[in-house]
Computed example of a mutant assay.
Amino acid sequence: MDRFISGRTRVVVHLAYPSHHLRTPRYFNAFCMEQNLNAVLVPWQVPPENLKQAFHGLRQVESLAGVIVTIPHKRSVAALCDSLSDTAGFLGVANVARRMPNGAFHGDMFDGAGFVRGLLREGHEIRGRRALLLGAGGAATGIAEAMARGGVASLAIANRSIIKAEELAERLRGAFPGRDFAAVPPDARGFDLIVNGTSLGMRPGDLLPVDPDTLEPGTLVADVVMEPDVTPLLQLATERGCIVHKGVHMITSQVELLAGFLLGEPGA
């Protein structure tokens, strides 16, 4: 690939609000350089009320390979796509959408696959674990499905809205009959894997997603928040003798999947 952006460069837009915390462009663009792919990822800060109009405009851009999607747009983009993968359709969320030659968008969801791949790459097996997932939003929903496929023994879901947690648990029970899924309070006792699937920890002054006094030594505590690198939850977990897993591992393990899906290269 030419090391400079040219008229043949394929563009990927990263839809977010806000966008200042994004680290995905750094890793995606580095991967494209390493793999000699003539493509570039650029962040777009789009408020929710303007998303539909912005997304429609992207349909007309022939240089566009597609979009990567993060908070708070994953459910909205899934609804705007013309077609969805089985995973994205089941979850009702998409974190990536490929622009087809006719301007249609096909969405998929790799948050869960990237998260589980990141855990495995760091030597953390999930099969047989008793997991507590904090959150029931877009990223959390994808992670829940991937952990279920990955063989966790049980999965409990704690969310600010208990109704949303129960809805997600019910959908998982329908997809994985005979497995143990439940909506619970944010109490970490009795679990050996805790996953923060919310954005809490991204901003100074955020509340913790779980009561830190309930964290037990030896528990694996994972976060999806990438900025800061060590979130308040991970810092407290370390102080309590837990094993911690950073949010950055989810995106570094997901980049190959995203690039393959958008650019048609190996890794899809």
Rank of each mutant, 00 (worst) to 15 (best):
A104M: 12
R189T: 15
P212V: 11
G142N: 11
L132N: 04
L193N: 03
N159H: 12
H21L: 10
A139M: 09
V230G: 01
T198M: 06
P217W: 08
V13L: 14
G118R: 02
G123R: 06
L84K: 08
K164G: 00
P266I: 06
S85R: 08
E256C: 12
A165R: 14
G150W: 05
F181V: 03
S76E: 11
E34K: 08
I157W: 02
T24M: 15
R160D: 10
L263P: 13
A94H: 09
G107S: 04
S253H: 04
G205I: 06
D180G: 00
V12R: 01
A139T: 14
F110K: 04
M109H: 07
A146I: 14
W44A: 15
W44R: 09
A65N: 04
T9D: 08
V210C: 10
S19Y: 05
R179E: 14
D82P: 07
Q254H: 04
I143Y: 12
G174F: 10
L58P: 02
D2A: 07
H21I: 09
R8H: 15
V11N: 02
P228Y: 02
G264S: 10
D229P: 05
N38M: 04
G123H: 05
D223W: 09
P204C: 04
I163K: 07
S161A: 04
G197F: 06
A88K: 10
V42D: 02
L233T: 01
L120T: 14
L220V: 13
N196W: 09
S19Q: 01
V13E: 08
P177H: 14
R98M: 02
G89V: 11
A39L: 03
A79R: 13
A94M: 09
R10I: 03
C81I: 06
R160M: 12
D223L: 02
A139G: 04
A146C: 07
D187C: 11
T24A: 15
N38F: 00
G205R: 06
L215T: 10
C242K: 03
A131Q: 00
A175M: 12
M1L: 11
G66Q: 07
D206K: 05
P204I: 04
M147E: 02
V255C: 11
L263K: 12
V42C: 05
E227L: 03
D229N: 00
R203N: 07
T219I: 11
E166P: 03
P212W: 09
P48D: 06
T198P: 00
R127H: 06
I162V: 14
A259K: 00
W44P: 01
G205L: 07
A175E: 15
G114W: 14
G66V: 04
V46L: 04
R179S: 15
A182W: 04
V77L: 11
L119P: 08
C81V: 12
S199V: 13
D108I: 00
R149V: 12
L91C: 08
P209H: 13
